[in-house]
Amino acid sequence: MVDPSQEPATRKTADGTSGSATRAGVPRWVKAGFVALVVVLLFVIMHLVAGPGGHGPGSHFGGQAPPVGVSAPDGPSTGGIG
């Protein structure tokens, strides 16, 4: 959400320029954030395409009802059919 009272135009340094604009390079938190985002995306992709034994390609796209009379193994599954 954006708070109009803290818009970038009001955040000035002593010489009147925007403090954020005068800083060169990418802030450290941005680099860390991008790394974390890439890790999360990789994890999500791996989670979706994991082979048999983990989560199959359709584990999160499932909609198939289990056959009547067949029950899944004991213990909680980790995310659906897989």
Partner: peptide, 23 residues
């Protein structure tokens, strides 16, 4: 899709409770 799978398992009267539960 996972929600749908869990709902199908829960709706199956033959499915054991331990298989319905999902972490």
């Amino acid at each position: 899709g996972t929600f749908r799978s869990m709902a199908h398992r829960a709706a199956d009267p033959e499915a054991e409770l331990s298989s319905v539960r999902d972490f």
